[in-house]
């Protein structure tokens, strides 16, 4: 029940933002629409009880995650722009396995998304049983140990995401 109320508040907020500036008509219709959508999407968001979800420390870590993510995203674009415009195309692509210790759905989704938008990496597939994530890299330097199953970016994001989602 509390989960439904939480989802209802979330979708009502999204509806109010979509129907900005707020007026009486839109608010009343929004109550019906948001309750319908929260009933429909109820079983898509399973998992944790609500009191861990409303813990304010998680939201502070989420803000920190957004800041780190924006900086990495900008660096990634500079990197790709350099490789695209260089006449020799300095790329050495390949796919590698990286071990991850995250378990929850939301954590893995956010990890894959942020890996895709960081410099030189794209997540290709996730093997949940073994806890592996397959990453396509644009440039694998010679000094990198290809069988070590470790990547600096993944470690960095894992540390933050574990505090948010687990």
């Amino acid at each position: 029940m509390m989960k439904k109320a939480f989802l209802f508040m979330l979708w009502y907020l999204v509806w109010c933002l979509l129907a900005w500036p707020p007026s009486m008509q839109h608010m009343i219709i929004g109550i019906f629409v948001a309750s319908f959508v929260s009933l429909m999407t109820n079983d898509m968001f399973s998992g944790k009880p609500l009191d861990t979800r409303l813990n304010p420390a998680r939201y502070m870590w989420f803000l920190y995650y957004v800041a780190v993510f924006a900086w990495e995203c900008f660096k990634a674009n500079i990197d790709v722009a350099y490789r695209v415009l260089h006449p020799d195309l300095p790329i050495k692509p390949g796919t590698i396995r990286v071990k991850t210790s995250l378990k929850s759905d939301a954590g893995l989704t956010f990890l894959a998304n942020s890996v895709t938008l960081t410099p030189g990496t794209t997540s290709v597939d996730i093997d949940r049983d073994k806890g592996l994530i397959y990453i396509h890299m644009l440039y694998i330097s010679d000094s990198y140990d290809k069988d070590s199953m470790k990547l600096k970016v993944v470690d960095k994001f894992e540390k933050i995401l574990r505090r948010i989602f687990e």
Binding site: A76, V80, A81, R83, L89, T122, V124
Partner: peptide
């Protein structure tokens, strides 16, 4: 346009 295969093209274009 410039990159040689699907995966590299996906990298460049998805990010930028």
């Amino acid at each position: 346009i410039r990159f040689p295969d699907v995966y590299n093209r996906l990298q460049a274009s998805a990010k930028c």
